[in-house]
């Protein structure tokens, strides 16, 4: 089993480390051909405009969309979740648009409003994970067939539809690899 991590920009190294702790081979994805032979793809945190711009320039967005249509599981954290969203409030930035959610960027405020908080993830159970929110987006609403797996003050922070998983926080910045294990299970 091999999981790709989109390595255009962002904290992809943290995701690769997480995959190592789960015991799965992680590979960096920077060009469309790197998508061959992977069983799942992680889109890391970073700047969603940078990821989108490079994704268009190096034809990765279309290639990833194609793989997603063939059923490739994808897990996006923060910027990754923004790229996966069908709708980004007040923005036409390039993205994948795979997951029926409405996302509002930087909705908690600027960096001084970034925070961590314990979050209980329903299919994973206690103890809660320490969720790190960095200039995080808010998922304002989700489509009818999108499952909400975790919330913070009634707002969804981890959502899933089939093999698509999106988090507004950064499980890769902690030592707790349960969300990554959950995704790896989706890829099997």
């Amino acid at each position: 089993m091999k999981i790709g991590v989109l390595a255009l920009q962002g904290d992809f190294a943290e995701h690769l480390k997480m995959l190592e702790t789960v015991g799965v081979e992680g590979v960096r994805v920077r060009l469309p051909e790197d998508l061959e032979g992977i069983n799942g793809l992680i889109i890391p945190g970073g700047e969603s405009t940078t990821l989108g711009t490079l994704g268009v320039r190096y034809r990765l967005l279309d290639a990833i969309k194609g793989k997603a249509e063939e059923g490739l599981p994808i897990f996006g954290t923060c910027a990754g979740a923004i790229l996966m969203a069908t709708t980004v409030v007040d923005s036409d930035q390039p993205r994948l648009g795979l997951l029926d959610i409405v996302v509002n960027r930087n909705a908690y405020g600027r960096q001084k409003d970034s925070f961590e908080a314990p979050v209980m993830i329903r299919p994973i159970g206690p103890p809660p994970i320490t969720a790190v929110f960095i200039r995080a987006p808010v998922i304002q609403s989700v489509g009818a067939d999108v499952e909400v797996l975790a919330t913070l003050d009634d707002q969804p922070v981890l959502v899933k539809k089939g093999g698509l998983l999106a988090a507004t926080f950064h499980p890769e910045l902690t030592d707790d690899n349960r969300v990554h294990r959950f995704f790896v299970d989706l890829c099997q």
Partner: peptide, 19 residues
Amino acid sequence: RVWGTWRVKVGLAEMLRGG
């Protein structure tokens, strides 16, 4: 919620990597 932690500060730096 806890704001301004070391992890949150270094976390933003991590997000800028490769940029």
